[in-house]
Nucleic acid binder design. Sequence first.
DNA 1: CTCAACCCTGACCATACGGTCAGAAAACGA
DNA 2: TCGTTTTCTGACCGTATGGTCAGGGTTGAG
Lengths: 212, 212
Amino acid sequence: MTAPERLSKRNAIRRENERVILEAAEKVFAEAGFGGATMQLIADMAGLPKANLHYYFATKEELYRKVVQQIFEIWLHAADVFDNAPGPVEGIGAYIDAKMEISRRHPFGSKVWASEVMHGAPVIQDYLETTLRDWTEGRARVIQRWIDEGKMAPVDPRHLLYMLWATTQHYADFGHQIETLNGGKPLSDRQWKAAKDSVKTIILRGIAALRA
Amino acid sequence: MTAPERLSKRNAIRRENERVILEAAEKVFAEAGFGGATMQLIADMAGLPKANLHYYFATKEELYRKVVQQIFEIWLHAADVFDNAPGPVEGIGAYIDAKMEISRRHPFGSKVWASEVMHGAPVIQDYLETTLRDWTEGRARVIQRWIDEGKMAPVDPRHLLYMLWATTQHYADFGHQIETLNGGKPLSDRQWKAAKDSVKTIILRGIAALRA
DNA sequence: CTCAACCCTGACCATACGGTCAGAAAACGA
DNA sequence: TCGTTTTCTGACCGTATGGTCAGGGTTGAG
């Protein structure tokens, strides 16, 4: 329950500037890393003077933290499709679809997250130990239930989850490599669909949720 | 054919110092990113004065380039097991084993590579466009041949390769996340074996190279 | 209209960084 | 031993960075 926000011009300005700054920051952090990113670069990309950034976000760390939290929220919501699914074909299939779509729509956020984790998660370690751990255990239980019900082959639920994360996020994090191997062109709509289908087919058949 | 190197004390010193510096650099670049890494930090970790680093490597970029080249060489060699394999079970199985082993033994190098690619490959773009592209096309042909010979299901060879890279490198690049979800402890020998087996089982069954 | 609260920004500061350099020290060939 | 090449390093430099701040502009409630 947040306080009802008045729609004054001030609120609009604040909201819009924070949005613009976060969008620019996400891109710059993704392309340069935390250490390589500069407040000046973010300011230029946002079209604001640097001092204005410090008005809305006291420090570089604070701005960075907000960016990481954003992508984390998006990923958590994507997992909703996992629940209430009758079986792995629907549940995992929909999860792959959702995460592939995020890789396509939010490649910068994915990269920032990857970078953060690779560097030892200095900023979001507590999220890993609480929210993410709970989430993981919950979904692992769902997968285990499907296994017990004979709906898929007995595989280690955790390693399956890692595989889902790895394959889907790879299309964002290593998007530049994929693009280069694709002749320097971004994947087309058709190619994105092929990627999705490949991942879904191989994994669902790999856990014996699809007939070979 | 390199010139035959004399085993003088000077050569030994140079060789040893370059080794120590590269090792320290790999770790620091992995943990802090290119922008976040400092020559001072690398020097401290190598146990040498900063000015000495600049004696062996003129610039930070030059040192970084060497580190990236190193891991790339290692990966290329790992792919040897791919060739001369009678079929996907042996070829892809061995490739997964090799890459998982590298993720375990060289996690820093893997992270540096990931970071480099995520930031748009400013330093090794030419490698992507030549060596890696050729490598990829070659292996894609091998996979296609296996498909034509009925040894595995018809999947897109490129997306299969991306999947292999993603899943195996995930254990290095996201090692910190995996460790956190493992109760804060690194994977044991037994757990590494389980990881390898999970990946191999799911993928090999996923491409119908194993009976379900 | 008034005035307080909020928004904005050019100029500035201390620090830390990559890189340089002069010259000492060690290794080496003769 | 002597002269030359290579290795080593403390001290230094210019620059760029994150962050500050004084003061001006804008908004909106009463």
